[in-house]
Amino acid sequence: MSIHSPKALPGVSRRTAVAMAGGLLAAPRAQAQKAPWPQQPIKFVIGYPPGGGGDGVGRPLALGLERRLGVPVVLDYRPGAGGAIAAQAVAHAPADGHTLYLADNGAISVTPAYRSVGYRPADFSYVGGIGELPMVLVAHPEVQARDIRELAALSHTRPQGLSYASGGVGSIPHLEAEMLRLQARMKAVHVAYKGSGQASTDLISGVVDFAFFAPTGVAQHVQSGRLRALAVTTPQRLAALPAVPTVAELSFPTLQATYMSGVLAPRGLPAPVFERLSAALAEVLADPEVVRQLEATGLLVGHRAPAAAQEAFEKDLDKWRALIHAAKLKLD
């Protein structure tokens, strides 16, 4: 089929006719470029298997975002490497607003502190912070210590010091215990497990002496007397363990540490998409029912605006990187 130059209409110059025809051809393209977002389902990437802690946080957020954005928000599980597999997938996804990441500081500001991964913390758009999961320092009841200083003193009465458990090398509880060891000048040996489940079982059995865990995993054991809680890692005491002092109350304020959560996207989102996403997340986190569901996981819900969320993750990276250097840890 041949294409002919447009003929001039009566009273219209040939040049004007050409311009009019070009405008008609360009109109569909301009409309496509200005099509409202989102135009397809949004993937919400989670770095842990189905049924884990990521579900308890991811599902309420996904449903809340669905209601506000008008398209399905589908959970996409990418487990492995402490969340680094998921983080890498999102960092290299198209920056069109159709891929989100339920991020935590384990993948964003801990793993990059000690080994090379296929992304940098700067490779993301920080849509906003969700909240923080605190940790509690717990010991077996036969460990004769009621606070951090007594725990440190006790460690020097044993030839090998005290033993502490974690759910894996390079995990936040591992690094927090190393920070405790340095700041309290303790003698302590790390016993790494493949997950927090076996670590807590062995702590309750007395195989190891102490550990840091999320309160949701150990509060019932503290209340039953099977474990003794020495401190919480938050600025304020926890409602679930109101009698347990904070690390700051025990004169160790720099031991404050939590699992931080946020919603991230690939770097370079168009400004209108980024603004709508961040506004939608803020609305979701202001919904009392969503807050109730998130708090049921142990999360201390607290929305952070994009800039504040990015700053929090960056400061966390600096903290763990400094610790790894000071403690001369070999984590890779």
Rank of each mutant, 00 (worst) to 15 (best):
M1L: 12
M1K: 14
L9F: 06
R14V: 01
R15G: 00
V18R: 08
M20T: 06
A27W: 13
A27L: 15
Q33C: 06
P50R: 10
P50I: 07
L61I: 14
A62Q: 07
L65E: 06
L69T: 09
V71L: 09
L75K: 10
Y77Q: 06
G82K: 03
G82A: 01
G82V: 04
A86D: 11
A87K: 04
A87D: 10
Q88F: 12
A89W: 12
H92S: 13
A93D: 05
G97R: 08
T99S: 08
L102A: 08
A103M: 09
G106C: 01
S109I: 07
T111D: 09
Y119D: 02
F124Q: 00
V127R: 00
V127Y: 11
V127E: 02
V127D: 02
G128P: 03
G131Q: 04
E132Y: 14
E132P: 01
L133T: 10
P134M: 07
M135F: 15
L137A: 01
V138D: 00
A139G: 04
P141W: 11
P141I: 06
E142G: 13
Q144E: 14
D147G: 13
D147Y: 01
I148S: 01
R149S: 13
E150Y: 03
L151W: 04
A153V: 10
L154S: 07
L154T: 02
L154C: 02
H156A: 01
T157I: 03
Y164H: 13
G167V: 04
G167M: 04
L175M: 07
E176K: 06
R181H: 08
R185I: 03
R185F: 02
K187D: 10
V191M: 12
A192N: 11
G195I: 02
S200P: 00
S205F: 14
V207T: 12
V207Y: 13
V208L: 02
V208N: 06
A211I: 04
F213K: 00
T216G: 12
A219S: 15
R226V: 06
A231E: 05
V232H: 10
P235E: 12
P235Q: 09
A239E: 14
P242W: 12
V244G: 00
T246K: 09
S251A: 14
F252I: 02
P253L: 06
A265V: 10
G268F: 06
A271W: 11
A271G: 04
V273P: 04
F274L: 09
S278W: 11
L281T: 07
A282G: 15
A282H: 14
V291E: 09
R292E: 15
E295K: 11
T297K: 05
L299E: 01
L300M: 14
V301C: 03
R304G: 00
E311C: 00
A312T: 10
K315T: 11
W320V: 01
W320M: 01
R321T: 12
H325D: 15
L331D: 07
D332S: 13
